[in-house]
């Protein structure tokens, strides 16, 4: 079987398109590269969705934690403590068990032109349940980063905004928020990298891989188990993830440049890869 044929058969295997059965014996290098790469689709999906929605919740959390009223501040503090203080692995297990115990019901949602039924059993599937956990987790970590940056916004900026008569939402949107993002961005880049690394935990922590549709690590460990030779699939996985890390740094670096575009060259803060590792 040629390598092109293998890519056609298994290139999208992780989302259920192509050959049903995984290769069982005589694994070629091409098969390993293709399947592990195909699993990377899931890692990208988890990471991008969780980071996108987590960003907004994190902003809210940071503002709430900075609030003066205790009944706004305390919930945010507890949320951040809960998700930063416990292992992501345990959070996955806990949420999965909780989702399993939910009553199996469907809720009809009318979108105007079409009616869909949202079912609670979707929550036990990785595509929704795991994304929710990752979303809450990254929101907590990012919230803490944003909170630190919010406290570091220069006093003069806020005073200048006051002098111009800006208040409330307008002042936040135009002055405080952009500066907060600019200050937080290098740390947030590291958080994003580790978000992508954390997505590999999903299929090892309760959420079952339905019809063997798994992520990159799922397929890598599949090959390692079958061949009893870890020296091929895991380095392939490592290569893919190093590429992923570089592209995250690239994309976030572009945004960083955009955020810093008004500053003189030497004042701009470069992104340094300073990892915080596991949750």
């Amino acid at each position: 079987m040629s390598c092109l044929q293998t890519i056609q058969d298994y290139g999208l295997r992780s989302i259920g398109i192509g050959e049903r059965l995984l290769p069982r014996s005589d694994f070629t290098l091409c098969e390993q590269f293709t399947l592990i790469g195909s699993g990377l689709i899931w890692n990208l999906y988890f990471g991008v969705i969780a980071l996108f929605f987590g960003f907004f919740l994190a902003t809210g959390l940071a503002v709430a934690k900075n609030a003066n009223r205790w009944w706004i501040r305390k919930p945010a503090e507890w949320f951040i403590f809960l998700f930063r203080g416990s292992p992501l692995f345990i959070q996955f297990f806990l949420f999965y068990e909780a989702f399993v115990l939910l009553p199996k019901i469907g809720i009809d949602i009318n979108l105007g032109f079409v009616e869909i039924t949202a079912e609670t059993r979707w929550l036990t599937r990785a595509w929704l349940g795991a994304v929710i956990v990752l979303f809450l987790n990254t929101a907590a970590y990012t919230g803490e980063i944003f909170y630190g940056a919010l406290r570091a916004v220069p006093k003069g900026d806020v005073e200048a905004a006051n002098a111009y008569g800006m208040t409330g939402w307008n002042r936040f949107k135009r002055i405080i928020w952009p500066t907060m993002l600019r200050l937080a961005w290098p740390a947030y880049t590291n958080e994003a990298i580790f978000m992508f690394h954390a997505t590999t935990l999903v299929f090892f922590s309760g959420f079952p891989a339905w019809q063997q549709k798994g992520d990159a690590l799922y397929y890598a460990s599949y090959f390692a188990d079958k061949t009893f030779n870890p020296f091929i699939p895991y380095p392939i996985l490592a290569g893919y993830f190093i590429l992923l890390t570089f592209s995250v740094i690239g994309v976030f670096g572009l945004i960083n440049r955009h955020l810093n575009r008004h500053l003189p060259q030497e004042k701009r803060r470069k992104i340094q890869f300073r990892p915080q590792v596991i949750r």
Partner: peptide
């Protein structure tokens, strides 16, 4: 550099067999 660029769980699974 390598250990930092790759998900740690992959290392855990790798080193146990290796």
């Amino acid at each position: 550099a390598i250990v930092r660029g790759v998900p740690d769980i992959a290392f855990f699974l790798f080193f146990v067999i290796a």
